[in-house]
Design a protein around this nucleic acid. Structure first.
Length: 482
RNA sequence: GGCGGCAUAGCCAAGUGGCUAAGGCAGCGGUCUGCAAAACCGUUAUUCACCGGUUCGAGUCCGGUUGCCGCCUCCA
């Protein structure tokens, strides 16, 4: 079994072989911190979170680098609007990023550099590019010369001639070629700046990723990821300038996740369908969102609709109910040292079917299907009329281990059933425990007297309060309807 | 205009030329239950947008048609 990944650069699935056996370097483009993260950021973060967890689960040591873009035109504009300093604004949204991503059970990267921490490195790279004839100064700006780099366009499958021909890009007065892009931008009045050989200014957008990825992972490293929209121009430019400056191959595998649409529309502020993670979390439990976002292949576009998400909520509730029942049969699930995908050590044992799905370009949809197949087995084993239920529990223990280990690689089922159900219940504050218990006691008395009419009335009353009853051999239990 | 992607059941969705087209949600029938709920069992696509072609064999490959979407400008 070997992990196959779709490499955008090759336009096909390739066997993933790291540069150094057992050691993987991964760089993912993070966010520009000028606003709250939306559901599309969540998808990207989750996809690469799962990639990291899986790479570790199969025994790799992973160095995961994810940046924050904290200097940028949008940040400057937004800070000005809010009367804050760009630094304060950036810090505010970095904090918000962590808050949202933590809820979605997204692991921290090993290195989380900010663009502003690497300005010197960027200046050095620009100097190298100028020296090598790949960049030129135009007044106080510096541009990269795309014509100086023979492979320009190969990553995104574009040809310079085509782009020039159909170009909607205005030819900057100072640019030699319309596709040339800024490496260094002179600061205008009132903008943040750093001193440089070209005067006060700030780096162009693509610089940071070239510099920071090379800084932490070397001039040739294993995987570079990001949203598909970053392929061009960002990744194309990032790669061109990095290779032009440092040599090497830059990233060997390029992975791009597909977009999220909301009700079939691309998210945009003008359409008013810009769904932040925060808003989504008021509607759905984070685990539900996570399951939904992993329920289709990462490269496919994903349409966020209420109906689709709620379908997955129903499925997740079913899994957690089974986990709850298992707790009463074989005790709570305890994390063993050898389980979980956060380990730094060797591979963990994963079911073959799960591995086969994940090895196939992280087919999380198939991996999720495996979870549900395992769930069915588990339910069968603990079903009251199951032939197996009386005797051997080792099969159940084994199945649960398979389920939980697989789920942990997906970052799912990390809550206990109790946590999950208390998290997913809505309107619980309006419900009085004592009142419910009293009604149930009344109903039990009625049932004992075979007064079914009264018993059913009480059940209906509770139902209208959002409480569902389950009569079992050990009495009546209740839960909040979800 | 250039480049790319997608069309599989009521809905979401997997499917890497070849046994009976995964899985989830919803629905229906059954078991269990006083009745329910939950769980289990069964059931729900002779067919994969449409038309051709290649092949012994195609949802899977090729060409065309239609429809939807993305990138080419900041974007996960």
């Amino acid at each position: 079994m070997a992990l196959m990944l779709y490499n955008t650069a090759a336009k096909r699935k390739e066997a993933f072989v790291p540069l150094e056996r057992g050691n993987v370097g991964l760089y993912v483009c993070g966010v520009t911190v000028y606003d709250l993260c939306h559901i599309g950021h969540a998808r990207s973060a989750i996809v690469f979170d799962v990639l990291v967890r899986y790479l570790r689960a199969i025994g790799n040591h992973v160095t995961y680098v994810r940046n924050f873009t904290d200097v940028d035109d949008k940040i400057i504009a937004r800070a000005r609007e809010e009367g804050k300093s760009p630094d304060d604004l950036a810090q505010f949204y970095i904090d918000a990023f962590y808050k949202d991503m933590d809820q979605l059970n997204i692991l921290r990267a090993d290195k989380e550099p900010r663009a502003t921490e690497h300005i010197e490195g960027m200046i050095d790279m620009i100097l190298t590019l100028i020296k090598g004839g790949h960049a030129y100064r135009a007044e106080d700006d510096v541009y990269f010369s795309v014509e100086s780099f023979p492979g320009y366009g190969s990553l995104s499958g574009r040809r310079l001639e085509d782009m020039k021909a159909g170009s909607r890009i205005a030819v900057g007065e100072n640019k030699r070629h319309p596709m040339d892009f800024a490496l260094w931008k002179a600061a205008k009045e009132g903008e943040p700046y750093w001193d440089s050989p070209w005067g006060k200014g700030r780096p162009g957008w693509h610089m940071e990723c070239s510099v920071m990825s090379s800084h932490f992972l070397g001039s040739t490293f294993d995987i570079h990821g990001g949203g598909e929209d970053l392929l061009f121009p960002h990744h194309e430019n990032e790669r061109a300038q990095a290779i032009a400056a440092n040599g090497g191959d830059f990233a060997r595998y390029w992975i791009h996740n597909g977009f999220v649409t909301v009700d079939s529309e691309k998210m945009s502020k003008s359409l008013g369908n810009f769904l932040t993670i925060r808003d989504a979390l008021t509607l759905y439990h984070p685990q539900v969102l996570r399951l939904f976002l992993l329920s289709q292949h990462y490269r496919s576009p994903l349409d966020f609709t209420r109906g689709a998400v709620e379908g997955h909520q129903a499925g997740l509730v079913r899994i957690y109910r089974a986990l709850e029942r298992m707790e009463s049969v074989i005790g709570p699930w305890i994390d063993n040292k050898d389980q979980g995908a956060d380990g730094k050590g060797g591979a963990i044992a994963l079911p073959d079917e799960f591995r086969a799905a994940m090895d196939d370009d992280l087919n999380t949809a198939r991996a999720v299907a495996f979870l549900f197949e395992t769930l069915k087995e588990i339910n069968r084993l603990i079903s009251p009329d199951s032939a197996d239920s009386s005797g051997d529990l080792s099969e159940l223990v084994r199945r649960r281990k398979e389920l939980m280990r697989s789920a942990s690689v997906l970052g799912l089922l990390n809550d206990s059933p109790a946590e999950f159900f208390s998290g997913i219940k809505q309107g619980e504050e309006g419900i009085e425990r004592e009142e419910i218990e009293r009604l149930i006691a009344d109903r039990s008395a009625a049932r004992a007297g075979k007064n079914w009419k009264k018993a059913d009335e009480i059940r209906d009353t509770l139902k209208s309060m959002g409480v569902v009853l389950e009569d079992g051999p050990k009495g009546t239990t209740w839960r909040i309807d979800v």
